[in-house]
């Protein structure tokens, strides 16, 4: 008998969950699902954009003004000597035509039309803003050149990324505030349902903090578990989306890819922890306010 009592576990002061709490579980899981999916999309867009800019950022085109075309070899030698330049090569007439094709159509251009002298330059990976250096070096020996370093394009992409990040942050903030409101509402309902327990604890001398902790613990655990489930579902969803999209379209390279790397795991864990923290904070606030109204 005494030993049976020994093994008996203390009942929690707050009775275990009811249907209200499963509804809350569902809502938090769904919100977390959306938040993680948003974070995944942003992250995938970032890595895709990194690839795009990395490609163009390694390439520049220099165009010598008409009178300087004769000094092509001299120019090539000079450009190759510039720091971090890997290769420099004069484009043939055919290559130049191909480059101009978007503007002039597929028909070959009349031979009489003077084409600008173009030099294709590649740089070491990660090199940025080398255009002005090349231009200055050429100017020193009296050559005038226009450099197209795709900086404008890369800048556009960076602007787009900033915009995407802002939008994503807005979405996550919105989801978090929905979560706070829903949890506050649910805590309030739980508080009403447990009114008698709260009253008895209060009159028996329990401090506000003691009572608030009961609810905090309950809801932070619920928030964390629901958040984790939502995050896992989001991962599953993203992976299967990537898989089916990959099978259905030739444009798969354009699609942001999903990788189950350190970042993805971090996003998921942080979301779940955040859900738990948010739930805890909302529960604490609601209970403390409600207790403050008791004598």
């Amino acid at each position: 008998m005494a030993q049976a009592a020994e093994k008996r576990r203390e009942s929690p002061l707050l009775p275990m969950s009811d249907t209200r709490e499963s509804a809350l579980f569902f809502v938090i899981a769904a919100l977390c699902f959306l938040a993680v999916l948003t974070a995944f999309s942003v992250r995938a867009t970032y890595s895709a954009a990194e690839g795009w800019t990395a490609n163009v950022e390694g390439e520049l085109t220099a165009r010598l003004s008409g009178s300087d075309a004769a000094r092509m070899e001299e120019a090539l030698g000079l450009i190759r000597s510039v720091d971090r330049v890997q290769t420099a090569k004069a484009l043939t007439r055919a290559e130049a035509e191909a480059l101009l094709q978007p503007w002039f159509g597929t028909q070959s251009l009349p031979d009489s039309l003077p084409l600008p002298s173009l030099i294709a330059i590649t740089t070491e990976p990660g090199t940025q803003n080398i255009g002005p250096d090349i231009k200055r070096a050429l100017a020193e020996i009296g050559l005038e050149a226009e450099i197209d370093d795709h900086a404008k394009w890369a800048e556009n992409i960076r602007d787009m990324l900033t915009l995407i990040r802002l939008i994503a942050m807005g979405i996550v903030a919105l989801l978090a505030s929905i979560a706070i409101a829903v949890i506050a509402f649910a805590t309030h309902a739980a508080l009403l349902a447990r009114r008698e327990i709260v009253d008895v604890l209060h009159i028996t001398g329990a401090e506000d903090q003691f009572i608030a902790k009961l609810f905090e613990r309950r809801f932070s655990l619920l928030g964390f578990q629901a958040g984790l489930l939502g995050a896992l579902l989001a991962l599953g969803f993203a992976i299967s989306l990537a898989f089916f999209a990959g099978r259905m379209t030739d444009w798969v390279w354009l699609l942001p890819s999903i990788a189950l790397d350190r970042w993805a795991l971090m996003i998921m864990l942080v979301s779940a922890l955040l859900a738990g923290l948010v739930a805890r904070g909302a529960a604490r606030l609601t209970v403390t306010l409600a207790l403050g109204r008791m004598s």
């Binding site: 002061l13 008698e196 028996t204």
Partner: peptide, 28 residues
């Protein structure tokens, strides 16, 4: 509020309607 709680802890109360918590055992 904390001081009131401390005073309450010095008082034992037998309520007219008992006010036991249904989900706890007699012992609890």
């Amino acid at each position: 509020r904390r001081q009131l709680s401390a005073l309450r802890r010095r008082i034992g109360i037998i309520f007219q309607e008992f006010r036991l918590l249904d989900h706890l055992s007699a012992y609890e």
